[in-house]
């Protein structure tokens, strides 16, 4: 139809017009939804951040200028949360990507039951966080947990039972372990698919030239998967910067930004302050994205 039409100029433009009208019509529901559930709230949130937000819907919010932001800067908990989040993001991004990469390399061979093994490895990523958090709490329990039994009584790694849920450093270790375990399958899937897309003849040529396994990895595999690994790490950084649920449900000792924000809004009920935290959060993420986009040309 398109090719036929191109011979006669008049109907072509009519068709194009109707195409473009249909295109807009079809994308419109998505755009309206995104505008009303993402863009409008973000703008509304900026407005809220300059107000003392009243809990009573009938009372107007009181404009207080930059007061919320000043409160934030003086709040030691805010700076603590920022620091914790930075550590959490840096460690989890590196850990989950590395584990994902290693497992992907391991599974990128032909062996019996590969498909089945792959589906099993993905399970932590699929199951609800809530179920997984509970079983982790059970396994790390200080009295009858299997992790302590193995690490303290069998392997003697610790002298006393580690306080996984109460000690700040150990709690951080716990939430990092949990996140690595839960999300590495995602990196694994993405990296495995890009490994399988590499042209086999590249390796054949390299072998003829006498390249060993390490050289093949360094000169062929790595450059081919680097774009995927790069965008993976950027996305994971954003997601983990906004992390809330599993950390909140696992321990009270790791008040990362998401937890701090949630508590400010729904425990302290200070929505104005929470709104200003939100603004700071997405300003940080935005500058991060702009920065890496400049460094890495195409992501």
């Amino acid at each position: 139809m398109l090719r036929l039409a191109s011979k006669a100029p008049k109907p072509r433009s009519a068709l194009q017009k109707s195409e473009s009208r249909l295109g807009i019509l079809f994308i419109l529901p998505s755009l309206i939804l995104i505008a009303s559930v993402i863009i409008y709230p973000i703008i509304y949130n900026i407005y809220l951040s300059f107000h003392r937000v009243s809990l009573n819907p009938l009372k107007p919010h009181k404009p207080i200028g930059l007061s919320n932001y000043l409160t934030l800067l003086q709040d030691g908990n805010f700076l603590k949360a920022l620091l914790m989040t930075t550590v959490y993001v840096a460690v989890t991004v590196v850990c989950s990507t590395t584990v994902g990469l290693l497992v992907a390399l391991l599974m990128n061979r032909k062996f019996k039951g590969r498909g089945f093994a792959r589906s099993l490895v993905i399970l932590p990523y699929v199951a609800p966080v809530i179920s997984l958090v509970f079983v982790w709490r059970y396994m790390f329990n200080g009295i009858y947990g299997v992790v302590n039994y193995v690490t303290v009584d069998l392997l003697h790694l610790f002298e006393a039972v580690p306080a996984w849920f109460d000690h700040p450093v150990l709690s951080m270790t716990l939430v990092v372990l949990f996140d690595t375990w839960r999300v590495f399958p995602y990196s694994f899937m993405m990296i495995l698919a890009s490994l399988q897309a590499i042209d086999e003849s590249l390796y054949e040529a390299a072998r003829i030239d006498g390249a060993n396994a390490w050289h093949q990895f360094w000169n062929i595999t790595l450059p081919e998967i680097l774009p995927v690994v790069g965008s993976l790490m950027i996305l994971r950084s954003i997601w983990n910067f906004y992390k809330f649920d599993d950390v909140y449900l696992l321990t009270k000792q790791v008040p990362i930004m998401g937890v701090y924000l949630y508590e400010t809004a729904f425990s302290t009920n200070d929505f104005g302050l929470a709104a200003s935290i939100t603004v700071v959060l997405f300003l940080i993420v935005m500058s991060f994205v702009i920065l890496v986009r400049r460094k890495v040309k195409r992501v």
């Binding site: 993402i38 709230p41 992390k243």
Partner: peptide
């Protein structure tokens, strides 16, 4: 702009 940053607004 997803997840926790949408919660308040």
């Amino acid at each position: 702009f997803s997840g926790i940053v949408l919660v308040v607004p």
